[in-house]
Amino acid sequence: MKDLSVNLSGLILDNPIVPASGTFGFGREFAEYYDINILGSFSFKGTTKEARFGNPTPRIAECGASGMINAVGLQNPGIDTVINRELPELKKIFHKPVIANISGFSIEEYAYCCERIDKEEQVGIIEVNVSCPNVRHGGMSFGTSPEAAAEVTRAVKAVTTKPVYIKLSPNVTDIVAIAKACEEAGADGICLINTMLGMRIDIARRRPVIANVMGGFSGPSIFPVAVRMVHQVSKACNVPVMGCGGVSSARDVIEMMMAGATAVQVGAMNLKNPYICKEIIEELPIVMEELKIDRLSDIIGIV
């Protein structure tokens, strides 16, 4: 019997597989395909204080075999509706602690939403997405400076009781400095990476494919970047890391864990193959057997 369980700041997951925020909605659509209770957990759609429509369409661009670009722009029904409508629905189909992904455009907004979501019984971990623009500071993303990321972390930690993971953007020069600033500010863990800034052009029409011009690139081709950043951050920090970016197989999961991830998130691949997380969970014990791994938690950060 293989042991797939992992421990994220005291929360024991049956396995390390966690669908990434924005690619799994609030679970309903995937529950039509399979019983989502087989998952370790999942991270729900990035939630903000107010309801948002997000960016104009087209919001999606194809990037060949390698991945896709999205510029959804955090479309979500707002924290009130998430608490009053989505979470009661989620409870019916998912019976494990869930990861609450929170976004904001000011420090106050992050703190407000995290304080509210912290009180929700089903929330196991709060995942704070700091890739959003800080509207009061010229729209620079909170996640691009150690000071701003630490400020968000401190503000959220001051009003919450549950583990807080800061989800970092890879679009920075020194990921380690930002991760360490978050750890020092009290973060219980780090999640990385979010999407990489990308762009596609429709060469026949001579204009960007995406209405927003640029968007977040994700999918299998960002995997090496994610592995590198997970490795760097997990070596430099003492808190657990959730690895994310380009994961598409059980072997990728093992690689990400060897790089230092305690849990592994799967994003864009859910959109291409709605069964990907189920397939990975089923494939993991087979690959573990092949690689002579009995307990998955034994390989965390061994490289």
Binding site: F24, R59, I60, M68, N70, V72, Q75
Partner: peptide
């Protein structure tokens, strides 16, 4: 993105 309601790509 997905075609089945999960990603908010087609709103």
């Amino acid at each position: 993105g997905c075609g089945f309601g999960a990603c908010m790509g087609c709103s």
